[in-house]
């Protein structure tokens, strides 16, 4: 078996700031990898580079599709990237409002990716949308409502439904539980964990929430100042941190 997404030697500079400094990372099919680190450590930049939303200054990102063909993400054309984003990938933003169309109903939001992929049967689109609303624990009776009427947690669940409706193989998540209160966070994490296990998704999760990483991730990558300082199985990294920064990070987690 070979890696789904593999990146090597990624460099990215914003002026004098080195957002990424020789980063290498890989993710295998069905695996959940959490990228943790403090604010400004380059987590989100790494995610954006891997998803083709930002060009790196140097390095390579290779994606292997379902047919086994390899795509170089950094050299891909806009058209090829959009095709990947539409069919193979999904991106869950921290702020649901960045991803949702707020003036379009919940059903339309979920259906958009289906229609972009060429589905032209209204009844079928609605059926699939209702099914996905149910899977993210929302009432399908509310599918014609505007997302403006929904709470933050519901908007986030709607975003997840919208992302997963086309059965992506790889989902990028940028702090999916950020900005939500703890009980909603817990439910959302539970939901994501269930979906990921059911669908066999590969997920690349950026978070600064160590508890969320422990719950969801198989593997953890710790970043600091644009470099990967430690990498390993979740329990190993969190229970036996080797790098001083990881030790600091793990010891800073508040016990409830």
């Amino acid at each position: 078996m070979s890696a789904l997404l593999q990146a090597e030697g990624l460099d990215l500079r914003f002026g004098a700031v080195r957002a990424l400094d020789g980063v290498a990372i890989s993710i295998w099919p069905g695996e959940v990898v959490a990228i943790v680190g403090e604010s400004g450590s380059g987590k989100s930049s790494l995610l954006r580079v891997l998803a083709g939303m930002q060009r790196a200054d140097a390095g390579a990102v290779l994606y292997r599709d379902a047919a086994g063909a390899t795509h170089s993400v950094l050299d891909a054309s806009d058209a090829a990237l959009r095709r990947l984003m539409r069919s193979d990938w999904g991106f869950v933003h921290q702020n649901a409002r960045d991803a949702l169309r707020m003036e379009v109903s919940a059903g339309g939001n979920v259906g958009e990716r289906l229609m972009a992929a060429g589905d032209r049967h209204y009844g079928h689109i609605r059926e699939v949308a209702a099914h996905w609303l149910e899977r993210v624990e929302m009432d399908p009776a509310r599918m014609d409502e505007s997302p403006k009427n929904f709470s933050g947690g519901m908007q986030q669940r709607l975003q997840i439904a919208r992302t997963l409706v086309t059965n992506p193989r790889l989902v990028f998540m940028d702090e999916p539980t950020g900005g939500l209160d703890v009980s909603v966070q817990a439910r959302l994490l539970d939901l994501i964990r269930g979906l990921v296990a059911d669908l066999g998704l590969a997920v690349l999760l950026v978070t600064h929430d160590i508890a969320a990483a422990r719950l969801l991730a198989h593997r953890i990558v710790v970043m600091r100042h644009g470099q990967v300082v430690e990498e390993g199985l979740t329990d190993r990294v969190l229970d036996d941190p080797q790098h001083p920064y990881t030790q600091l990070l793990v010891s800073s987690v508040l016990a409830a």
Partner: peptide
């Protein structure tokens, strides 16, 4: 990439 236009028609029918 014309999914967006189809979304508008979808919204019309839904409403």
């Amino acid at each position: 990439d014309y999914g967006l236009m189809q979304v508008k028609l979808y919204e019309d029918i839904a409403r």
